[in-house]
């Protein structure tokens, strides 16, 4: 999704009174699945639009977003570590680290 489509979706969700969070990759080092600035919307029902990296780290982002929507109403700055060597612990193996800002809009 382009940035324009993401913000259109935000406007649409707000018009429909559906609570959501916007997640944006704000910083990244090493190899990451998506670039700085990539965005994803997470809705109160758990549905997602856009992507901050496919499987890599998206579960953590989704949990943070739901925590924010359902309880804290506060933004979070998440560090996502993708350096699990061979994925032996079921982790992500892209090799880098990224920091994602999750905020209610």
């Amino acid at each position: 999704m382009t940035d324009q489509e993401i913000f259109q979706k935000c406007a649409e969700l707000r018009d429909r009174d559906i609570p959501f969070c916007l997640a944006t990759i704000a910083e990244a080092v090493g190899s990451t699945p998506r670039e700085i600035g990539a965005k994803m919307i997470i809705c109160a029902d758990g549905s997602m639009h856009g992507s901050v990296g496919g499987g890599c780290g998206e579960n953590q982002v989704r949990s943070a977003a739901l925590r924010c929507i359902l309880t804290t109403k506060k933004p979070e700055f998440l560090e996502i570590d993708l350096t699990d060597d061979l994925g032996t612990r079921g982790g992500d193996v892209c090799g880098g680290k990224m920091w994602i800002f999750v905020e209610p809009l």
């Binding site: 940035d3 324009q4 913000f7 259109q8 935000c10 406007a11 707000r14 944006t24 704000a26 933004p75 700055f77 920091w99 800002f101 905020e103 809009l105």
Partner: peptide, 20 residues
């Protein structure tokens, strides 16, 4: 949301600064 949407629709390039 409205302002960013409007600027994007107009084809503008701009910087959105967010305290993280």
């Amino acid at each position: 949301i409205a302002r960013v949407g409007e600027l994007l629709k107009r084809g503008e390039t701009f910087c959105l600064v967010t305290v993280v």
